[in-house]
Nucleic acid binder design. Structure first.
Lengths: 338, 338
DNA sequence: GCAGCGCTGGAAAGCGCTTTCCCGCCACGC
DNA sequence: GCGTGGCGGGAAAGCGCTTTCCAGCGCTGC
């Protein structure tokens, strides 16, 4: 066992050419190699089952074919969709994606970035949401700098202001549009299940939603904060119920939270939408099969992943580019007229 | 920009020690280094912000810190759960996971394995399900051999017979137990929405289910094959409906397919479970919030990922180890007495 | 007819690290 | 007192590849 790996040198020797020539043939270069030699090398490589040593190539070229992808939780459909987009693009470009998960701990983001830097990843997509945690944020910024200085590119999904390329979903605008749409249904009293207050995404959606209510001349909503997860939504909804709120419509800042909230309501015998309407944000694919179908703001998640990967892969200038992605309000069965 | 990276050599020079000593201090070795020098090196490294070049280390050590993970579709909860388990274990071990997706094309598995081999990944977890496609299968086997010969370890989730470590869910036993449980509810006529006939997982579950029915003295079910996806389930259910089957209970070999099937039934006004009962397999987390709650066979998906990662990470002997994971029948609201 | 150019092939110098080998030093035993 | 070992430190040989630099050669242009 452990038969040693076939090296370029062996291929070269076997084919009767120099190392340089073999390298040029097999791994492409600006230089031309005669048809004759070229074919001989190719054939020998094939016969010997040569596979280039990626580490050696990375070392020699001082750049690898790794692309990092950092998410909070890969089981969350929001992230897995983005991941799908990123991997598709990366694989098409012949690159390999490294998956890092933070488990929602902000400090892990910087750690992962450092690891990625050690591996000389050529690019990283940061899909975790930005927090307002000063310390974590500045450490992250430092790592991003180090990473880019080293020649790597960084793109963020949904968190601007880090001086990197960014894909920005219309969180605020989406929240606002949703609020208006719900107001048009006749609702007057709203509650919001907001995520953790330090998450910028959650804040933006909430702020947009409030603005939309203001537009419609409606009083600000009750806000209940909770974790950015299904269980967070469940707990927040329970809290809402306990508070004897008179809200007729609930906005959960995330579909995943909305799912949890719906479960809580259902459990307590609250009918949706007869007793209370509910809406989410993201339009994750699993929503297709929810009953009642959840109203939400659709974000093209997979596409966002593709865009981020695209940004990070084609060089671009020094300027940090920003691609805005609009959210589209989709009203379904979970929201009714009031 | 592109400030050159700090190298070990610089650290060594700055600290006034040799390259060898610096390496020994920073990356550990059997050799001892005096307290004095050791501390000096550590401090200098810190000051300079030294990060070892992973490619160079991989090259010199002839082994990397990469672990591969191959799945069909990361947005499928089945795979994302497994992925979560694998990444957790890998990250704890200080390794980095490389995510490869096949998009359900069997030949991609071999390709990815080859890429992973190029990167000298130290281990790979193959979570994609095995097909009966001869050509793809033998190419895969060859790649697995090459990979292990090179010193890497391979573990499969749910596909034995490749001579690798394996985590085997009780597909057959689970299907059988489920069939019996459903028979006990009084159902006599069954339909199965089977996955693609060449997928071993699908076949096993189906075979188990049939055996269970036989146990209960019930006639074999109608089987409708479809893609292993939500849409495949939807289409298969539509086909079932069109066939005017008199089945009172439907088994979809996958929860994801069951979700699609439920959507189809709902759309056609078929009530679940009043008109027809339905059960799935896997117990993916999203099921928690389905209405009606889906009966299924629970598999500890994330744990399976952890086990696979565990197998692949601790050396083990030459023997291919197999860890069996039992499925547990969980009857919920989607199945009723008949 | 010859300087000069473009083109192909090979030798060899790295890329940043690990690890072997060697050297000097000290403590020890006879 | 001197050979022996053991031990901490450094020089240097790789690891497998890329790429620069040089040599040789056939052409072109004056």
């Amino acid at each position: 066992m452990s038969a040693r790996q076939v090296t370029l040198a062996e291929v070269a020797k076997q084919a009767g050419v120099s190392l340089a020539t073999a390298s040029r043939v097999l791994n492409g270069s600006t230089r031309q190699v005669s048809e004759d030699l070229s074919e001989r090398v190719l054939r020998t490589a094939e016969e010997l089952g040569y596979v280039p040593n990626a580490s050696a190539q990375a070392l020699a070229r001082n750049s690898s074919s790794l692309v990092g992808l950092v998410v909070h939780d890969i089981t969350d459909p929001y992230f897995s969709c983005i991941a799908a987009g990123v991997t598709r693009v990366a694989e098409e470009a012949g690159l390999v994606v490294v998956l890092g998960t933070t488990g929602r701990r902000p400090e892990r983001e910087a750690e992962l970035l450092s690891t990625l830097r050690a591996h000389r990843a050529r690019a990283v997509v940061l899909a975790g949401s930005r927090t307002t945690d000063r310390a974590a944020q500045s450490r992250l910024a430092a790592e991003i700098d180090a990473f880019t200085e080293q020649g790597g590119r960084v793109a963020c999904v949904s968190q601007a202001k880090l001086g990197t390329d960014t894909v920005v979903p219309g969180n605020r605008a989406g929240g606002r549009a949703l609020a208006r749409a719900l107001a048009e249904l006749g609702h007057k009293k709203f509650a919001v299940l907001g995520g953790p207050s330090e998450l910028v995404v959650a804040r933006d959606r909430l702020a947009g939603f409030k603005a939309g209510l203001t537009d419609a001349g409606i009083a600000p909503p009750v806000v209940i904060n909770g974790a950015f997860t299904r269980d967070g939504g469940y707990a927040a909804a329970m809290e809402l119920l306990a508070s004897k709120s008179r809200a007729t419509c609930v906005f959960a800042v995330t579909d995943v939270m909305a799912m949890g909230a719906m479960a809580a309501l259902r459990e307590r015998g609250v009918r949706i939408p007869e007793d209370i309407s509910i809406a989410g944000f993201d339009d994750i694919p699993t929503l297709r099969d929810t009953v009642p179908a959840l109203s939400t703001v659709r974000l093209p998640l997979e596409e966002m992943g593709e865009i981020a990967a695209g940004l990070v892969l084609d060089a671009g200038g020094d300027e940090a580019r920003t691609v805005r992605v609009a959210g589209e309000v989709v009203l379904r069965a979970s929201t009714a007229h009031n």
